[in-house]
């Protein structure tokens, strides 16, 4: 019963999203508004500015390197979070066992 309701709601969501997605500029058209002057600038000036033929590497490590610094910070934070959840409690529990025994 609950499953049927969920399927009904999600079918409605699917129809809604599909109908709005089909109104977008079609896949692969060159006059997509996302292909604007920023991307054209990156493609045309990447070699001159950074001497790196890979445009994506020049974007993530030169033009937007501050963004990538935040990205590595996210990785570092995730490690810190996982270690603080798993390791630290493990140690304190062992200590508690010793005290009890």
């Amino acid at each position: 019963m609950k499953k049927a309701l969920v399927i009904l709601v999600l079918l409605g969501l699917f129809v809604l999203l599909t109908s709005s997605v089909l109104k977008m500029p079609s896949l692969g058209s060159i006059d997509n508004p996302s292909y604007n002057e920023t991307s054209v600038y990156y493609i045309e000036n990447a070699i001159e500015d950074t001497h790196a033929p890979n445009a994506i590497a020049s974007i993530i490590t030169d033009y937007r390197s501050f963004d990538t610094l935040g990205e590595t910070t996210v990785l570092f934070t995730s490690i810190a979070a996982v270690l603080s959840v798993l390791r630290l409690n493990h140690n304190s529990k062992e200590k508690g066992d010793k005290n009890n025994g």
Binding site: L27, G28, S29, I30, N32, S34, Y35, T38, S39, Y42, I43, A46, I47, P53, N54, A55, I56, I59
Partner: peptide, 24 residues
């Protein structure tokens, strides 16, 4: 970011103008 018949954005050093997909 896909563009029809666009190449991946590894820019050609030969100097020919080519159509690249949107790298952003």
């Amino acid at each position: 970011g896909y563009v029809n018949e666009g190449r991946s954005p590894i820019i050609n050093l030969g100097g020919d103008k080519m159509l690249y997909i949107n790298p952003l």
